[in-house]
Write a protein that binds this DNA or RNA. Structure first.
Lengths: 238, 238
DNA sequence: ACTGAAAAAATGGTATACAAAAAAATGGTG
DNA sequence: CACCATTTTTTTGTATACCATTTTTTCAGT
């Protein structure tokens, strides 16, 4: 056993570097989820590597990961850009959320304790607070966080990860198809939901979540807006 | 729905310009799913780069991707190895399959036509054939293919992708916890399922799929076998 | 035979080079 | 002035090399 002495204050330590990448990944991911990087925005490798002070190789790795999560789209020889979900994808994502998140509610209700409920209430409170003080970006992320945390409470890490991905993509969908000023989730919906879960009423929570998600989806104006190549002839009625 | 049409195999968010890398990715992925690379097997970068004739950079990219799909595990400073699923993960995966695959059956039944049924029957036939001629590896993959194709027929590409990941991981789970000679799926189960779907009986198909998955899970002997660091004190009752 | 030090190999990250492709700039022409 | 073709510049995608750190293996010494 080799003696690992504490005072390792290496500047470019390995562990630090590893976490650095993760931090950058999170920074980009958050920026996308919070819609500070809007769908369609190009993400050039050089620019990112300069901004974050890591090599292009590292940036590339991060972009790969984001692409796998479908937050960015990699077009061969054209690089990365923030994904602009299609109407079909939006439908798929919300259908998937219906199936998974609703299906998880009974499990969540079963495992919901005081501590968990308190944590969720805190998240809901922060979300309301952010919304009230005009920090829409933060509110969007907190709303996603709420749904993800809920899924995690089901105890199924795999499904929770799926929900995480679906929520991230939902942010993109809201950015493209949502109305300005109308954030996906109604502010007190989440609190109501916690109530049902705390009461152990899984079926009730399930039904509520279903309506909740339907409401979000209904608030979108999903109209396959401008394709890459709009038919000008048609546009101008010629 | 988005794109769940004929082109069976993989659909990645990443449209990889270079087909070579994608082919290698598939080669490794298939080898893992077919259990030619067994859980725990180490995947050294140099070895892979030599075998496939591409640079270590490319190999790393592929390993990254496989790691995100949880087919390989990247341990810091120790490199990549084929993932050995834990008992908990196995449970999560099968619970997730219950929720998603069963939930998809009504949609699949609704969209099932003659062509689709014929294609599924062909897959089921190939699977039986492979099993009969002792090609267990091929049968395993074909079985996974069947479930994935089924999910794709639901029309929800997002959920189909989830199912794809779950099926790949299921192969690993079978490799670790399955009994030799007993492949996950009963050979005529799949044919029965097609029958229900073709008859448009979504609920029946759903129930059948549920039993089908339960049967697979039940055939496993999930016993948290020897961890890396067994507690010797406990082992010897001290 | 076992422990511990030295050597070798492997990983994780970066930088650099370069071909190929795309985007931008340029310039000629009607 | 607008439009098209060509050239220049960027940018991507991959390979190669380098280095620090860590793991693994080898090898010695008691």
């Amino acid at each position: 056993m080799s003696d690992a002495q504490a005072p390792i204050k290496r500047r470019t330590a390995v562990k630090e570097g590893d976490e650095r990448h993760d931090a950058i990944y999170r920074a980009v991911s958050d920026a996308i989820v919070e819609q500070r990087l809007k769908p369609g925005a190009r993400l050039r490798e050089d620019a990112l590597s300069e901004v974050f002070g890591i090599s292009r190789t590292g940036i590339r790795k991060i972009l790969q990961r984001l692409a796998l999560e479908q937050l960015v789209t990699l077009t061969p020889r054209r690089g990365a850009s923030v994904t602009r979900p299609t109407a079909d994808e939006a439908k798929d994502v919300f259908d998937a959320r219906q199936l998974i998140e609703c299906g998880l509610m009974p499990d969540v209700a079963r495992r919901m304790g005081e501590k968990e409920a308190a944590e969720l209430r805190e998240l809901a409170r922060q979300e309301r607070e952010a919304l009230r003080s005009g920090k829409q970006s933060v509110a969007i992320r907190l709303s996603a966080d709420f749904h993800v945390r809920l899924a995690q409470l089901s105890g199924n890490a795999t499904l929770a990860e799926f929900v995480e991905r679906l929520c991230s993509r939902s942010s993109l969908i809201l950015a493209v198809y949502g109305h300005r000023g109308h954030l996906g989730c109604e502010s007190h919906d989440h609190d109501d939901l916690i109530g049902y879960l705390e009461a152990g009423n899984g079926e009730r929570a399930k039904a509520f979540m279903s309506r909740h998600l339907k409401a979000i989806e209904a608030s979108l104006s999903i109209v396959d807006e401008k394709d890459e190549a709009p038919d000008l002839r048609e546009v101008f009625g010629l």
